[in-house]
Design a protein around this nucleic acid. Structure first.
Lengths: 132, 132
DNA sequence: CCTTGACCTTCCATTTGCTGGAACCCCTAT
DNA sequence: ATAGGGGTTCCAGCAAATGGAAGGTCAAGG
């Protein structure tokens, strides 16, 4: 299977697949003409990567998860630990974004949004808050 | 005022301040010895940038906001438009993260997390979903 | 006067995860 | 033979800093 087909099957752009090979996440074979030859297992791994990246796992996380994925004797606890760590990061990020969202929407509500120059958004940004 | 003091007052690392000068967000004066000399207005801008970045505005957004901040005759509508656009992006990001959070926490709940190899997390990642 | 240490300077490399483009090879169909 | 649609490599660059090397400056203390 050529890279184009692998791309269709995994949902990853060809460029990204080449990049993943570059950084050693996959190791497709090569045809006589130099074209990459993807086996089923390669496509499977690519789909795995696509999923894991979509869930926000970092490349390094993916590398670890792939290793566990391939290790028949891994314990599910190892995987769960990685996933939980990542879930924690996601939750932190959500909380941060929610803070931003709240502050920003208050500011937007307070701003007339007309032709006049007075703007609570800029006023507020101009006045540095006290940091704890 | 030297960069160290400007850093303390604005809450930005010195490295970041130099970087902001590099990309033209601020233009501090220079002392005879080559040290950057920050005026009150520079520190003020830095604090502004610090705030805006903390709210997740991109550097380019910051550049625009700064220009508006300095323009006495801007209309608040211009600022509001940028802020609203950004708020939309934040909300999208929150929604995305929430999807991840939900999927991931379901998977984590389903995973025994013991010494056995069977792991719903890896199983699920291995099976590519149908994309719409 | 000299040294020590805290500052400051510039410049270059690295990070993360790709993405774009140039220049070139390969295969099939017309 | 040539046009197209694959494929290949390598090099550059994006955001937004951060880290480190190599060196200049300044004030204080011995």
């Amino acid at each position: 299977m050529n890279i184009g087909e692998a791309s269709t099957h995994s949902g990853l752009p060809a460029k990204t697949i080449r990049y993943y090979e570059d950084i050693g996440l996959i190791k497709p074979l090569r045809d006589a003409n130099g074209y990459r030859a993807f086996r089923q297992q390669d496509v499977h791994k690519l789909a795995f990567l696509s999923q894991a990246r979509a869930l926000g796992f970092s490349i390094e996380d993916c590398r670890n998860l792939l290793a566990l994925y391939e290790d028949q004797s891994r314990s599910s606890a190892d995987v769960k630990a990685i996933a939980r760590e990542h879930l924690g990061q996601i939750e932190t990020k959500i909380a941060d974004l929610r803070d931003m969202q709240e502050t920003l929407s208050h500011l937007i509500d307070a701003c007339a949004g007309d032709h006049r120059p007075d703007c609570p958004i800029l006023n507020s940004l101009g006045k540095p808050r006290i940091k704890p």
